[in-house]
């Protein structure tokens, strides 16, 4: 069993992760192809014919100056949105969530144990952080995670919109870190914990594209879609 979950299953998990992200992207793009508004009944149909290759599209001239002006405006707008967004209203929450998300990526990617496994499997690996550091960072990650859990349990507003699904997703996100931490410290039965860790890690990768954890991908789409000032780009993307 160990051979399977630490061998083929890892590839299956990664394949599901990437294929799932690609599939969800395509699904989103396919669904967005359809025009949302139908032509009003009685509108002359002849107009459609004109839309040949020759249709003159008014394009902005992308001179260098225009590009700079655009980038400048974007920068100012992003700064403004930082001030008026959660950074300005929920400093504590913003701190925890930024830390949480950075560690979520940094710790497993630059973890010595993972990179050793990667080198064994592929012959190449990424640089690793010292183990004492990643261990401490894992602890910090868990603190952030428990901050979220307690918030969900005890803040009236958060509880009002939380259901079993939200706790399940919390668990799926946290379990790889919790079991990794326990394995590193050899708490309980090391062999068992390590197996749980590997399965938990694979589970997390597999479910990301298909659950609310998919916000990792869709975050970017939505930010292009929204029309208000906290959007990316012009916020008028029609896909």
């Amino acid at each position: 069993m160990y051979a399977f979950i630490s061998g083929p299953m890892v590839w299956i998990a990664f394949a599901c992760f990437f294929a799932g992200l690609a599939f969800q992207t395509m699904q989103f793009l396919r669904l967005s192809q359809k025009k949302e508004l139908r032509a009003l009944p009685g509108k002359p149909k002849a107009k459609k014919k004109k839309k040949g290759k020759k249709a003159v599209k008014k394009k902005k001239a992308w001179t260098l100056a225009a590009l700079f002006a655009w980038a400048d405006g974007l920068f100012v707008r992003q700064l403004e949105s930082l001030r008026t967004s959660l950074l300005g209203h929920h400093v504590v929450m913003a701190g925890f969530t930024i830390l949480f998300h950075i560690l979520l990526f940094v710790v497993p990617i630059f973890l010595l144990a993972h990179n050793i496994l990667l080198r064994d499997a592929l012959g190449l690996s990424l640089p690793s952080l010292p183990e004492a550091l990643t261990d401490a960072l894992t602890f910090v990650f868990l603190l952030c995670a428990f901050f979220f859990l307690f918030r969900r349990l005890f803040v009236r507003q958060v509880r009002a919109i939380s259901g079993p699904y939200d706790y399940l997703m919390w668990l799926i996100t946290v379990l790889p870190f919790l079991t990794g931490f326990m394995a590193y410290h050899q708490w309980c039965d090391y062999d068992l914990i390590l197996r749980v860790h590997i399965i938990a890690g694979e589970l997390m990768l597999i479910v990301i594209p298909f659950t609310k954890l998919g916000h990792m991908l869709f975050f970017f789409f939505y930010r292009f879609l929204v029309g208000t000032e906290y959007s990316f780009g012009q916020g008028k993307r029609a896909w």
Binding site: F28, L31, S32, H90, V158, G214, H215, F218
Partner: peptide, 15 residues
């Protein structure tokens, strides 16, 4: 596309 996907990606964070 926009509605159901967005509903499923709401993190229930109340921010």
């Amino acid at each position: 596309d926009k509605m159901k996907f967005q509903l499923s990606h709401c993190m229930r964070c109340t921010l």
